[in-house]
Amino acid sequence: MKLLAAIGRAFLGLLAAIGRIAIFAGQTLGHIVRGPFYLRELAISFLNIGWLSLPVVGLTSLFTGAALALQIYAGSARFSAEAVVPQIVAIGMVRELGPVLVGLMIAARVTSSIAAEIATMKVTEQIDALVTLSTHPMKYLTVPRVLAATIVVPLLVAVGDIIGIFGGYAVATGTLGFNPAAYIRNTLDFLELKDVVSSLAKGAMFGFIAALMGCYYGMNSGRGAQGVGSATKGSVEAAAVLILGANFVLTGVFFSI
């Protein structure tokens, strides 16, 4: 009986958390379409989330594309199908690995940073100070970050896709003996518009989730250093899980037959 009660409490807690996040997301969307807009904060968010994430996104994609080429080559050699390496690298990077890895890297780098920053602002009464200075915290802190991430993460995904494919290309032509021109032709011929669109749509959704979770956990953090730590940890966990869940849903939407 106690076990059932504990499961029930956990389930109700989960539903309540989902409800709170849904309300927060709704409020954020509401503020996105209504002014005032803080363009300086938006520009800073573009810089922090987009430009400064490029190195980690580039390196992650490069190594993933290169490893993918090696794996596909080794696997396909078992049934003499080595020629599929360019196509599988392209489809693997663009449809799945590019958006998911970029999403997870953004969750690690950006979500944690947003949550820690906003939680610290809350603990040090900076959020209260914003209110007393007639500035809505959601408009000033949440909207610029969520909007910037939703716009800029698809661009990061596009860059990640290209670098990942280049990683596969470099390994395939450098060590596996593929013809460079044929590799590029096979890659371009095999990719469809839907692959690219799905990749960018996933990027937008993952960016929205990553920034939203950072803001939500930051705004709702507990007191003191422990509160900031818990908010940061919770935001990354929630963002990573939601990104992977959303990836499954979006893959179903775009590619289920």
Binding site: T124, E125, Q126, D128, A129, V131, L133, S134, T135
Partner: peptide
């Protein structure tokens, strides 16, 4: 809120803004 000013216990200055923008925060927006 425009009628009020408040000094917080820890000052609650915005770390990312220079001092003058902290002081003039209300005068730069709204």
């Amino acid at each position: 809120l425009a009628r009020f000013g408040m000094l917080f216990q820890g000052a609650a200055l915005f770390d990312s803004l220079p001092v003058w923008q902290n002081v003039a925060f209300r005068l730069l927006r709204g």
